[in-house]
């Protein structure tokens, strides 16, 4: 009993002291570096609206490896036929080279598959910008009836039954195979899918000879025509929403308007977002044909001309278009040290 009382007393004293300490040190904590905002990244590159892709990205290699396996595993779909990599082929610029991907039913999908490369630098995923994170995007596609068409109740037991997954997940994540860890692994892998060291990035890093004069000219036109107003930043786009068809109504020209054409409207339901899409990244644009959300254009030059008409309200001289195309091709980067390329046949 007396011991209890003594402990009681000591604890009480400790409590008092702790309180005193906190009261005295709190202002220091608040107004010292402890609470200051993170230091902003300084730019060592050319003062351009486009930023180079970092050469490396720091990630847990085990998670990347695991994520890669998941990414390539058709088990992640209900019918065990469709893996992420079906539509996002890393050898083909991170997409499938089709105007519209093929669904699990073997039918054309509603929309063109965007590249998975550099998706980590997009502020939202998908054309309509529905998902802030790669995890949410991955989960949505797993559940999407046209894509994975699976559920967690179906998927997790499948993964748990797999010895490799069970072992690997447990070695990385204490909680083992769960919704969170599966998505984390996939997203971590996807984050690793960056394509640095494009010739343009080399130029941005100060190598004047990395791109030709014509390509430089193309970049100048890119800026002069105001393309740069939307296609900027690390991903040369992918960080804002913009209405498709500022100067002309593409959809009435094209006709056959479908729900997928409404773009961001499908997410927000606001009228001002009708036909608004996430500005796509122009990284590796040279190897990710066909173009536009509906995959209606199969060449880059056509797309440049198309964009001039609908987003600039004008036509560009051919010479400018050629130079712009030359410039855009300098944005093709490397994955695992290999420059990306487009499937010849599809070209």
């Amino acid at each position: 009993m007396s011991v209890c009382i003594i402990i009681n007393g000591i604890l009480y004293m400790l409590m008092r002291l702790t309180y005193l300490f906190i009261v005295l040190t709190f202002p220091l904590l608040v107004f010292s570096g402890g609470i200051s905002s993170p230091a902003s990244t300084t730019n060592h590159y050319k003062n351009e609206p486009i930023l180079p892709i970092p050469l490396t990205i720091s990630l847990d290699a085990r998670k990347v490896k695991l994520g890669e396996r998941l990414f390539n595993d058709p088990q992640l779909s209900h019918n065990n036929l469709l893996a992420c990599s079906n539509c996002h082929q890393l050898l083909l610029g991170g997409d499938d080279g089709l105007a519209r991907s093929i669904t699990n039913q073997g039918k054309p999908d509603l929309i063109n598959a965007p590249t998975v490369f550099n998706s980590v630098y997009n502020f939202r995923q998908t054309w309509r910008g529905a998902f802030r994170t790669l995890e949410l995007q991955a989960e949505a596609d797993l559940k999407n009836p046209r894509h994975g068409a699976t559920t967690w109740d179906e998927l997790l037991p499948k993964l748990i039954a797999n010895v490799y997954y069970k072992k690997t997940f447990h070695s990385i994540y204490p909680e083992g195979i769960t919704r969170k860890t599966v998505l984390n692994a996939i997203a971590t892998f996807e984050k690793s899918l960056i394509t640095p060291n494009s010739r343009f990035d080399q130029y941005l890093r100060g190598d004047e000879s990395a791109i030709t004069n014509d390509e430089k000219k193309g970049y100048l036109y890119f800026k002069q025509y105001g393309c740069i107003a939307c296609h900027q930043g690390v991903n040369v786009g992918g960080n804002l929403f913009q209405k498709f068809g500022l100067f002309a109504d593409y959809f009435s020209v094209r006709g056959n308007i479908k729900k997928a054409d409404y773009g961001r409207f499908n997410v927000t339901g606001e009228e001002k977002d009708r036909f608004v899409f996430r500005v796509p990244s122009l990284r590796n644009v040279g190897v990710t044909a066909p173009y536009l959300h509906d995959g209606s254009l199969d060449s880059l030059r056509k797309t440049i001309e198309f964009m001039a008409i609908y987003q600039l309200g004008t036509t560009l001289p051919d010479e400018h278009v050629i130079k712009l195309e030359l410039f855009l091709n300098t944005l093709t980067g490397e994955y695992k040290g290999q420059s990306l390329f487009m499937k010849e046949a599809l070209r």
């Binding site: 002069q224 105001g226 393309c227 107003a229 939307c230 804002l240 929403f241």
Partner: peptide
């Protein structure tokens, strides 16, 4: 901010043009 961004984009686009 998203609205602002698109508007600034368009604005800058037109301005540059």
């Amino acid at each position: 901010v998203n609205t602002l961004k698109s508007n600034i984009g368009v604005l800058h686009n037109s301005f540059m043009y």
